[in-house]
Design a protein around this nucleic acid. Sequence first.
DNA 1: GGTACGCA
DNA 2: TGCGTACC
Length: 924
Amino acid sequence: MTKEKNLYILDGHALVFRAHYAFINRPLMNSKGMNTSAITGFVRSLWDIIVNRQPTHIAVSFDVSNITFRNEMYPEYKANRDETPEDIRKALPYIKKIVEGFNIPIFTLENYEADDIIGTLSKQAEKKGFNVYMVTPDKDFGQLVTEHIKIYKPSRQGNGVEILGIPEVLKKWDISSVDQVIDMIGLQGDSVDNIPGIPGVGPKTASKLLKEYKTVENLLEHTDEIKGKLREKIESNKEQGLLSKKLAIINTEAPIVFDEEATVIQNANREELAKIFTELEFRTLSNTILGEHKDGVQQALFGVEPVEAKDLPVIDKIAPKNYQNVNKEYLLIENKEDRADLITTLAGSEAFCFDTETTSLYPRAAQLVGISFCIEPNKAYFVLIPEDHNEAQKIVSEFKSILENEKIIKIAQNIKYDSIVLKNYTIDVKGIFHDTMLMHYLVHPELRHNMDYLAETYLAYKTISYDEMTEKKGKNQLTLRQVAKDKLKDYASEDADITYLLHEKLYKELDESGMKNLYFEIEEPLIKVLAQMEFDGIRLDSEFLGDYSKELNEKILNVKDEIYKMAGTEFNIASPKQVGEVLFDLLKIPYRWKKTKSGQYSTNEAKLSELSKDHEIVLKILDYRELTKLKSTYVDALPKLVNKTSGRIHSSFNQALAATGRLSSNHPNLQNIPIRTESGRKIRKAFIPENDDHVLLAADYSQIELRLIAHMSNDEAMIEAFNKNQDIHRATAARVYDVPYDEVTDHQRRNAKTVNFSIIYGAGSTNLSQQLDIKRSEAKELIDAYFNQYKGLKKYMDDTVKFARENGYVETLKGRKRTLRDINSKNRMAQSGAERIAINTPIQGTAADMIKIAMINIYDAMKAKEFKSRMVLQVHDELVFDTLKSELDELRDLVIKEMKNAIPDLQVPILVETGIGKDWLEAH
DNA sequence: GGTACGCA
DNA sequence: TGCGTACC
């Protein structure tokens, strides 16, 4: 018997798009700011096939243009498509070059889609005795599947590869013959390709109908047997259904001939590939594909043992290094002598790296399972810590002297977490913190900063997966305590070891970026402040919330009743879908907006508010929404977050998330605790001081961003207004409307205020007109008048954008940088988005720097004075202190002074407003 | 308009 | 994942 012939035909565009969008939230980026998601994803899929599937023949097909014969049948075909994203357009030439580098032929054909080319080639190849695999994520290809033609669906984020033969296709579509794929599309349509189908018919109805009638044509002949609305819909859309089916048919007779010879798999052009990979900075992929040694092309490229693709996710093939193939020395330390030796070793070091393994993501609730240490590459120690708390405390205490040694630098990934966990064991980690996560955050604020990602990008190393170690299969997962100690030793040691290696690279990169000062003067000391704040937490009045919950519950029931009465029916008010149907179908309230993507009525607040003026029920629905949201998100949720040991709430502050440099908080998120409405504000009453000897002191910056923009832009008029201590919005209105300061109307002031804010956010006239409910032209005039008064501001904004264009980044007063990859984009949307960021980031980021500096200085001063009072919250421009009454006056003076002087020598005064109260609402 | 988090 | 809401 001759060898089997296996042909893989890749659906180029579909794979590229899928890869691009797979990473859309955190695109892969090289140092030149190029988005490489699409290329990486495509090449990974290609390489996966070459290595794991051992094809004998291979080809790639691409679309040539958007216009094909289908547009002659139906001009709207694919007309809903947005323009190809710029990132993809830029990626395509590279992908084609790489495919050529692999010596793989590319098939294209004018006026036909890649689908048709793949269909035609597949059928011809099948006749020549091939097994054909159509490599595509598109399930429409199901119509072409036969015994020898299958769909090969590349793996998606660990989902594993799917191979669809006839039974799989039938199951996926719930049909009885693959020919019915086109009937399915004919009936249900395809929103992606803008194929209309028959309105009101979805997948369920379509397959039910086809079970009965087999084909669209047959169905249309027997519509008299169908009942009710469905019949009407089908009868009135007959033509559309037939056309849709036609559009769905993949042409297998395209004018193209399958050239068997051309598709035989060949050795790659190593030099060509190396050149492209270098340009793209694909170190990992390049190592994987080209190997690290220069000889043995055949060996490195295709001489790989066949592996079942299912068993090995693509990623394992991509990162070449891991615990299995690099020589690592990881030692398990579980007796007192070994610990003593380790401590001696660590005590003699200038710096060591450590990492804790615990039982919880939340440090205040976490128990130590072990601590790993590393002081040289590829060697690490794992100290096992038993479950018994007294035993554990004893062992941890042995390490107190070195962890609290101020002279030893501590290297760790997200050291705030470890530091809080150790506080649970009365250890206060000291010495300078070198946090790899924060270093990377400063250098690349817009990327991800988790260790696995850093290991892959900086070290080309694939770490041991947590889920693998804990044998996660579906729902069941071992806890760390259940993991065999040797396995845990490897996992934990690797964390410390990898962090150590990452530190070498990241510290250097931080230095080169010029942000070392920013790190050591702001971020590093802030870690210690935040760790203390999180550890201390804030007291919560659960009793108050319990009462409030009951109160809200009654209100909710009342509102619900009223709504049902007005609607004349009961429905789920929490469901936007049902709300839409009741309002616009049942009650016939005119609907005059676009529907949502999923074809539903949009019922967001802006639209409902507009309707609420004329329709009482809409007002009630808004009330209902507010009350239920309040109850579930805050009133009922907050008491659940009270820590059992401390009896307090320990919100976590993420220092490495917001690209502008701000902190974010979660568990709970303090940044969206309502303030606009009365019932929302009340939530703040639940945040209370430690006891009757304490009060809450709240201090917030007044107009900090406008003051900063005044300073940074050198705008004389704005600086003058602030120096005269004027109300800035009133002063703005006086200038813009050319009226005396004292005669500004409320309306004028409100407009001016809105303009002031839209300026800070870089918003344009469109946005402003919506905010103020005025015409775009009026908004434009307003903005022009504004800039005419604040000429310095205008110039600053122009200069900032110009700087960003030339340098590719913007920065804050303290040197925090943010790269703007779209600032020179040809895509207008993307570019103006980048311009807004260019204007907003320096301001928001400087304000963030400023409050961070204030926090550090206040914290240090409080420590020096041995205050019993504690800094407990930071929200945007506000700090909250749980204050011992006897320290109140001194603390307030201190806070005001440090907040004002965080960034000295500004051209405008900085105003800090303070309040005192028995709860946060009263203090605010 | 962007930057977030949490709920369903 | 989409939607809602908070902040700026």
